[in-house]
Structure formats: structure tokens, C-alpha cells
Amino acid sequence: MSTFFQRLLLAFGVLVLIALLIEIGLSVAATTHGNQPARIVHVTAGSYPLTVSLYKDPANAGFALPFAIASDASQHGALSYDVYSLPGTGVSATPVHASLSPDPDIHGGIQGNAEITVQGPWTLQITVHGRAGSAVVAVPITATAPPAIPDWLGWLIGLLPFYGLLIFLVTQHGKQNKLQVA
């Protein structure tokens, strides 16, 4: 393999590594709550009025959707929550249990990340448990994905290691022939 091609391969490797680091950074950033919610929804679950803050609207499919839930704790006492992201009709996905933790900024509030895996309509299903019993409310969400690449391009990229393997086998074959001649 010529030195030029080796350097080209090295440069390509470094670029891929940088792209991966950016992707990891984006995935981590997706789980962090911004300063301002992108959308605030006021809903009522049974007798519990809730304020749901969504930090991405529309949500990015394939990434976590940060959210926060607040309620008037003084009126209802301590509340506990259970949150799921549920795929809408026609979305090929399964329900996902959201991760939750206490919101340090709001007394009695919680924050969490809901996984939205596939583009399309979803709902954030919030179950509230409190003194007045349990109640459920659904907050509709839309998830979008980057524009789709054509199938053939997907396959062209996906078969990259096969090209590598074929080139490798052919190169090895060439080397063997040279060795036999020598």
C-alpha cells in the first residue's frame, strides 16, 4: 500500500474519530436540561394540576427528550410520578420507561429524560400518585429525524467493511502470487 494511500486512510480515520466524539457530545448534550423549556404544557391528571416543561419541541428521534414536571405540592402533599413515552399509531416502537430524579430548582418537582426512539407521534404518559389517589394524563409529542438518506446510499455505506475485506483478500492474493514467483 502506498504511503499516500496510508496517509489518506489515516486522515479518514482521524475524521471519523472526530465525528464520533461530536456524536457522543451531542448525545450527552441531549440529556441536559436547557435554561428555557421549548414548550410548556399545563395538564390535569385527575385532581392534580401539572406543569410539564419539554426542553425540545419537536423531539429528536433517537435522542433523549429532557422534561420537567411541577405541581403545587402544598395543595396535594408529596406526589410521586411514573412516566413512559408511548409510540403513537403506526410508529414501529415500544413503550419506554423514562428516567426520573428530583428537580433541584422546584420543590416537589421532578425532571427526567424520555427516550423517543423513532420519528412520528408519541405521548408522554404521566402517572401521578398522591393523597387523592392515582391519575394518568397524556402529553402529545412529535418526534422528527434528520432527512432520510436513500436506501442505496445506506447500503453503499453499510457495506464499507465488505469492500475493505475484499480489497484485503485481493491484496493478500497478489502478495502470495509475488511470493510464489520469488
Binding site: 428521534a61 433517537g62 410508529v91 414501529s92 416502537a93 415500544t94 426512539t117 423513532v118 420519528q119 418526534a143 429525524a145 434528520p146 432520510a148 445506506g154 455505506i157 453499510g158
Partner: peptide, 11 residues
């Protein structure tokens, strides 16, 4: 890339 593919075409 696979995560992106799933985001487009489902699980």
C-alpha cells in the same frame, strides 16, 4: 448510523 436508521424506520 444504526440509531439514525432505526429513528427513520422503526425498531
Amino acid at each position: 448510523l444504526d440509531s439514525y436508521w432505526h429513528a427513520l424506520y422503526g425498531v
